[in-house]
Every structure is written in C-alpha cells, then in structure tokens.
Design a binder for these strands. Structure first.
Lengths: 361, 361
DNA sequence: CTGAAAGCGCTTACAG
DNA sequence: CTGAAAGCGCTTACAG
C-alpha cells in the first residue's frame, strides 16, 4: 500500500469510535453496535475511501483466502500447453466461486526446498501441484507438506496425498480395444516423452490392450515423439516404412496425431480409408483438422474444478485428505477412424475420397 | 500458517540471540554479526525448519513482491482463449525472472469498486488489467488506481495509463493492402463481436484499406461472427450467396477463418485457388489447417513480457507511467492466399488441386 | 452497545 | 557486533 492510504485507525477517528467498533460494523458482528454508529462508520469509510488491508488481516487471521498453484519446469508451461490453461481455468472458476483468490507459484527448478519456501510462507491456505513430471522431486515435497494440498494431473498411484487425474491407461486401453473390435490387428503407436506420467500410462494402456487381445507388438510398431506436431510427422514417416503396413495408428496426444495426419496427406494416403488415426486430449485443433480427428477427451476443466474443491474442503474442514479422484476419458468419435478395410493398404493408390458419417463435432 | 509453525522468535531463542540478529543474518545485513553467531542462527533455522512468514514481512515492508493480473468477465476467460494463457505466460516469465510472484484476480463483474477492493488491498504491488472489453468500466478504475498498473491488450488510444498492445488496425490495413496488391478487389470481411476492442480496430483497418484503394465496400461484404469457428462457418455460407463472388475473405480471427475454410471445403471450393482466406492471431491450429492458414500473428507472449516489465519498472522506480507500447502484427504467409485469379470464380467446378509453394511453417 | 489492550510475525531505526 | 522497543494494520478475547 502506498504511503498515506487510510487505515482502520483513520476511519475510527473520523467516525469518533474505536477501531474495534469499525471492525464490528465492517464484518457485521451481530448487533454489537447501534444503527447510528453503523452509519457514522460507513460514512467515514466512504469519505476516506478506506479499503481493508488484507495483508494485515491475513496475518492475524492466519488465513489468506488464497489458493496456490505451483508449477514446475516453467519454460513455456502454460503456453503451448492448453492443458495448463484449461486446468487453471477450472481451478480459478471453483476458487472464485468459493471466495478464494489464486496465486501462481512458478518454480524455476523442481526443488522441494524452494517449493517449501514459496508455498509454506503464509501467503496461501493450500497448494495445488499442477501436473508434475515423472518422478518429480516436488512429489516428495507434496507428501511432506505442512499445508493442505492436492496434486492435479498425472501422479503415482501410491501417492500419499490427494490427487485428481484422468484414467490415462484405462482410456487408451478401452480405445485400442475398440479399434481391435473394429477389425484392426496391426496398430502402431506414437509414444510420448518418457518424462511425462501421462505418456507412460497411455503407452501401458496400449500395450496391455494388445496383449489382452493376443497381439504381440514389436518395437517397430512404436515410435517415440516429444508431443510436438513435428515429432508426430517424423514418427509417421518412419512408421510408414514398416512392412506389412498398419491399418491404424494411435498417438499419445493430438498434436502428434495432427502431425501424422500431415505426413499421410503428403504421402497421398487417405484417412481413415487407408489408415485410421486416433489421438488423445481433444485439443481445439482436433475438431477442425481434416479429417476431424477421433480422439480421447480428458475432462481437464473438471479436473481443475475438482482439484480446487478438494483443496478447499481440506482447508475449511482442517482435515488432510489423501483421496484419489480418477476421471474416465471420453472417446470422441469424429472422422479419422473406420473399421479395418479387408483390402491391405500396402500399395498406395489415389482414389476417390469417401466421406465418412460425422458422428459428433 | 498452521499452529505451531516456528517463528523468528523460536529461532532467536534456540540460537540464543535476539530476533534482530536473526533478521540480520537471514537477509545478510553486511557484517552486523560474527561468523559464529551466523552459524548458530543458520543451524537453528535448519533444526526448526523455519521459513519466514511473508505475510508478516509484507505488512511491515509494505511490499508483497507480487504482481496482480486482473481479468474481467471471467466465464471461460482463459480456456477457449489462448490469448489469455499466452499473455499470462509472458507475464509469468518476466515476473519470475524479476523475483515477483503472480496473483490472479478474477472479477465476476467488471465493477470498478470490486476491482479496487481486490487489487488495492496490499496483496499486490502493481496490477495488470488483461484485455478489457470495449468500454469496460474497469478502464475507469485503472485510470484512478492508486497502485502502479498497466493495461495489456486492446485499450483506447487516449487511455491515461500505461498499456501494451498490438497494432490491430495497422496490421489489418497492411494485410488488406497486400491482398489488393495481389490483384484482389472484392474482399469480404468476417467481423468480430463489437464488445471487443480488437474486433473493432481490425474492422477499421479493413475499411480504411479498401477506402484508400478507392474500393467502396457494401454492407453485404461484411458478416459479423462471435469469434467462434461455428460463426465463421455460418458467415461464410452467407458470404457465398453474394454475387458477384469474392476472391478473398479476411477474417477477424483465426477460429472464424478456420470455420470459413470448412464451409468452403464442404461447398467444393478450393482455397486459395477459388478464394483466398486470411486470418488473424496465428493460433496453433492455423498452422495445421488444410491448407495451412495465412494469418497475422500478434506477439502475445512479448506483449505479456513487456507489460510485466513496464509494471515492475513503475513499482521499483516509484514513478507512474502512461507509456503506450504498440507492437506491429506480423504477416505469416502460409498456403491460404494467392494472387487473384483472372478467371472469375462464380461458377463452382471441381478441379485438380494445385499445391501452392509453402513459404513458412 | 462500546473500547482498551494484547498480539499476529516480522523489520527497522536507534542506542549501546 | 548486538538487542530492546516501536510499529506495520488489522482482529479478538475481555471487561465494562
């Protein structure tokens, strides 16, 4: 606050009452004051343009009414990653509705001590660890944290803290099983970076689904990208060299699937007639791709909302929780997947594009 | 802070020194203590797991080392709008680098008094008003604000506060002039919602460019959307009914341009052979659209960085500023624009797709 | 119905 | 080199 900002003392003096009385009327403590006093105080507040200093209030109440979102590995964390912004959106919506404000604690390094210093400093009532990387040191912090906290996004199953996430493995398992039911047997996989929990879990889902269907994948079936469109393009180029060819490819995220789509288009292959493509995330671009991408949507906003809700519950009840909330992924059927064609797509030949029915947009 | 959290007093007692001395060693006040004292204090800090309470510190120093980002009309502000997340990203990057943390102040209504209460409460050292709507009441607040502040995103030219923005009008003016230089004379416009400054400015740029080229647009040339893909689709359908047909269409943002692309594809028209399409923003989906969308990129992240920098300057110098920083837009040439074909595209006929050279991706 | 006083956990002159 | 004391702007028993 700049110098000269009116304080509660100024208000008290102007209204000719004590500061105790000012607090009482400001926060409406029952009938601890007369109507006349009330008016005098409110008038003084008005005339002075008084606004309570929340920092002072927080100090004595030991409550800041603020939630903290801690993100690690900040380089471009929010941008280029709609996951964070959507998550934040959900958290923010729930926080605002419950009367909390939000503080972003961006850590340059995933250092537990750094997190402790920034988060457990009285400025927030509880912390949300947003989408930690695989084996992040921050998970140790979160487990030994002295304030209410919950982890949003991929985290170990045995985490000793509350967390909210999508069922990465189960969703991919179900989707791959669906492809198999559509007749696909040769299903390639564009894997994601191994420092992401999500990438690891999704890969497990893929492998397990093949395994349960009695299909043995070989290393050639899997190409690893880094979640970028470019890496998806490159992975697809390599996969196209594998013989016999695949009838379907599952990508660990939409951006790589979009890159794969580009490669296929450039090579003159039709999607889904020649190859079915399945993504994950349902980013905005997926719906306007050509063809519109069939993908697995995770309810990121809902995850954010639930995360904030869980945190606020802990704060207001005073009871720590280690509840795990897992949302199912939702298969969004668009136009990039169709039943496996009996005709092997080994030979590349241009043909009339058949427009599949749009099922959802 | 939970009960029982060690305070500076506990550290002092354990180390057998005064609290003054503890502060001195913690914040390294020159040589106001012996090496031995220093070690004793640090050891006590370590043993107790002491972490300074920043709320108490903020109260006495009248500094929170926190920047506030105030956003109005919160419904889905961040999500569905990469502008906010990218802006936030830039702000965050600069803040972290300068040792500030970030607080998000989401206002349910654009009420100046509400803003004053939430922002001028001692919890932030300065405020960033992020992309206010056209004639937002928050602009009044920002002008009469008692703390350092800067507006990011579209705002009136005569704003009496610092602000950072892209040159919406000038960028569209230049791009439309470019289309005219490519031979286009009939250029339609998909306008944006009138409660956005950006939409209004871009429309002015379009009109002024036509005017300066001696072209008189009629109301039929302009269809208004709401920035969504769906509205772009609908606008394009209406525009296609106008005769004589257009050779180019400029969209007020990329999402509507993407919708327009869909409509054109469905109608069997080729882009850019039949109609050139130009977007604005360069969202991620623009690069992977088919064809990849030619668009005007605004340096949103840089705007965020500059905004934070301007704010921090004000905070640390103690001098308010009303500087306006305007970035030029950048034309990103992809594959959705080509010179106007001499052959009028009135009759729709399928033909071999000519792949234009890719100029940038 | 109202107010004096203690205290939240720090920092900062100031005196020694 | 070190510490007692005042104070940042509030809230909260507690006494009247």
């Amino acid at each position: 606050m700049p110098e000269g900002t009116p304080t509660i003392k100024d208000v008290a003096e102007r209204a000719g009452v004590s500061v105790t009385t000012v607090t009482n009327v400001l926060y409406g403590r029952g009938s601890r004051f007369s109507e006349q006093t009330r008016e005098r105080v409110l008038q003084a507040v008005e005339e002075l343009g008084y606004r309570p200093n929340q920092i002072a209030r927080s100090l004595v109440r030991r409550r800041s009414n603020t939630l903290g979102v801690v993100v690690e590995h900040f380089r471009g964390a929010l941008m280029g990653n709609p996951y964070y912004s959507t998550l934040l959106d959900g958290i923010l919506a729930e926080a605002v509705q419950s009367g909390y404000q939000l503080k972003i604690i961006a850590l340059e390094r995933p250092d537990p001590e750094h997190a402790r210093l920034s988060a457990e400093d009285g400025s927030i009532d509880g912390a949300i660890l947003a989408a930690p990387l695989y084996q992040s040191p921050l998970l140790q912090w979160v487990e030994s944290c002295n304030i209410p906290r919950v982890v949003a996004g991929s985290s170990p199953q045995d985490l000793r803290a509350a967390c909210v996430d999508v069922d990465d493995e189960g969703s991919v398992y179900a989707a791959v099983k669906w492809l198999i039911d559509l007749g696909h047997r040769r299903i390639a996989f564009i894997a994601g970076p191994t420092n992401y929990w999500s990438a690891r879990q999704r890969e497990r889902g893929y492998l397990r689904a093949l395994h349960d269907a009695g299909i043995t994948p070989t290393p050639h079936w899997i190409r690893r990208g880094d979640y970028s469109t470019l890496s998806g393009r490159q992975a697809m180029e390599l996969l196209l060299q594998v013989r016999p060819a695949f009838s379907a490819v599952v990508s660990c995220n939409d951006w790589m699937a979009l890159g794969a789509l580009e490669t296929l288009r450039r090579k003159g292959l039709l999607v889904p007639e020649d190859i079915s493509v399945l993504g994950f995330d349902d980013v905005e671009a997926a719906a306007v791709a050509s063809p519109p991408l069939t993908t697995i949507r995770q309810p990121v906003r809902e995850i954010g909302i639930t995360t904030a809700r869980l945190l606020i519950q802990q704060i207001e009840s005073g009871k720590p929780s280690t509840e795990h909330v897992i949302f199912p992924g939702e298969l969004v059927q668009r136009d990039s997947v169709m039943p496996c064609s009996p005709e092997p797509p080994d030979r590349i030949k241009p043909r009339q594009r058949i427009r599949p029915r749009r099922r959802r947009c």
